[in-house]
Design a protein around this nucleic acid. Sequence first.
DNA 1: AGCACGCCGACT
DNA 2: GTCGGCGTGCTC
Length: 765
Amino acid sequence: MRRWIANVVVNVAARVVDKTFSYAVPDDWEIHRLLGSRVLVPFANRKLVGYVQSLTPVDVSPPGVSTVELKPLLEMLDSLPLLTPDLLALAEFISYRYAATRLQSIETMLPSLLRGMPRQKGKDSGAKAYPVLVRSASLSELQQALSSARANAHWLKKILADLMVDEEIALAKWAITPSHSSVQQLLERGLAQMQWREKPRLQAFYEELALSSKTSTKSLPELTSAQQRTLAQLSQALAVKESKTFVLHGVTGSGKTEVYLRFIEQIVKAGGGAIVLVPEIALTPQMVEKFVSRFGSKVALLHSGLSDGERRDEWMRLRRGEACIAVGARSAIFAPVANLRLVVIDEEHEPTYKQEESPRYDTRQVALERARLCQAIVLLGSATPSLYAMNLAETGKARMLSLPQRANGRPLPTAQIIDMREELRNGHTSILSRALQEALTETLARREQTILFLNRRGYASFLLCRHCGEGVECPRCSIHLTLHRQGQTGGFRLTCHYCGYSTPAPERCPACAEVAMRPYGLGTQQVEDTLKELFPTARILRMDVDSTRRKGAHKDLLDKFMHQEADLLIGTQMIAKGLDFPNVTLVGVLNADSLLMVPDYRSEERTFQLLTQVAGRAGRAEKPGSVLIQTYRPEHHTIVAAARHDYNAFYQYERYQRLQYRYPPFCEIAAFLASHQEERYAKGAAERFFRELMRHPAPDGVVVLPASPAGLLRVEDRYRYQVVVKYPEWNNVRDWIIQAFDTVYERMRKIQGVCILDVSAGRIG
DNA sequence: AGCACGCCGACT
DNA sequence: GTCGGCGTGCTC
């Protein structure tokens, strides 16, 4: 008999034990259930939970470990392995690619309730057991029993008749309990058996949703020829079982989602599974409804709104194969979908696809790797494909697909750029240009709706003393406090958007004590106030982080606007997402420049994406829409391109810039960040990291920027210093960077410092 | 991360 | 003489 060694990732969160430990597998254990399962292992005089990462036959003992001395595994903790081989391989990839520990990689794949020691399923577990009757005799026996039943045995006859149609029926169907006499009689006669089933809490929701959609008998929308062409190309790729990547460039309203749905339909029919990733904020009931009404409980939903129990249930439904379509936010890329054939990343350009905690992965890269492991297709969909996606296409790693027109044949709204300098010159200092004010008046008169976009919440960006010129900074972060108004009429407070610090707005300047504080920079609250003055009869809603903090507030606001209980919606980026309001015919962007002023190499890309998305909110139904973009830089190429819906012009320009100055996608950026309460330690750690790197010659084509204060020197009372490395290829720099990182990491940990390494970092300012 | 081992100060 | 400080090092 063959004996096995299990290589286990132990549940110890420390970089120094980031390796697998080998244990002898007891002879009588079932090997096929072991790989990917949790196990209990002896480890330094303790018992720990670990994850079986791989198995090797005993005669191929791992290097450096003598087989004879191995301790045996103590216990197997899962009956169905949590992690399938493709997920185990993906965890390895993530550890390598993003400098995370094996444990971190494995644990981000699992719902929190399935990490570490299995917990006793409490009553909050979400899965409620419910009783079912299962047929346990032949149909002829049931027929016999049915015909010989006494005339007044209504229940018995009803149940027997139903059991002849369905093999298994929940007692809930007849609204009876297991103690019901007719049930007892069936059991005694051996015609049926009682069993308990676990019913995930969400299932009821799915069934309801599927039912309500079916009863409304919406027929499937007819595909446009562009949609058909796209679908045909995808189907063709599906026929060959190998990994392929597609970039789907579809203008706002072009019906990308319908393409996803039709394609998934094909895949599911062929017994395959799919993962659909959507930015958290776009995971609206509307969006979910589209999937659930089409696929019912084959869909498993994975988003942050679920309780831990619900998320575990959804995950297990996929793992057991009861569901085969995972719809969710970023982390759903790790959903245990069997026979995975497709990963859709909708709104692929969104920054939320980058995880900002370790493992700091880029979902698009992970999707490509997962698809490679499973021979699946990746579909990156966007109205404004990222430079990353375009680069995949240009280098032959992906194929372009496009939906250049709106599905309903409506034209994209005309966009007009308004020169705010001109307004100023003519003595108009209002936040609304004359053109926007007029358009707003007309739109209100037509009883149509308007959306105003402004990328800053609060009342004003900051409070400044007009006497001494000082602003008010957060005591814990190196940033100006933002002015907020409390409630509708309440007083003003200053708030830090980084650490949450808040204090009443001072009347006197904290620096010079003069009564000369004045707000600068426009926030959504102030816009709301101004508009209420200008249009006292208009019904106005404001939507930003502050007005949607309450659970369900987000949906309530959108519902209100959708049902036309408001004329005007003022909001931050959260209103830019794929919301479909047919009666919106005017969209105003109040200050397009504020987007451009972010010190980040991607700020122009982000500006173009946001302007395009916001503009896409107008005129989605029969009525034509118009878009007004206010700016002090009317000639800026990003703004001009967005106003003209000229993706290609934007792309060519931006591509050239990135190439010229060597920014992603033409290189990759890793950012080392050290933070400490004392500035000299943070600075010292960054300098030490730099010196460690310099001890070895840098690989070809690598640029190392010396230690410098991070974009915000201080956050939450900790000083931050960084080192930025630009390189063409991670594989060639990994060992070099990791050794430097590990050296500094250990030293820093001992003095309560924190070091992070963000591979494929975005922000580097 | 824990936990043991290990070498120097004030106490029943 | 012992109890205990937390520095260093190891865990299959």
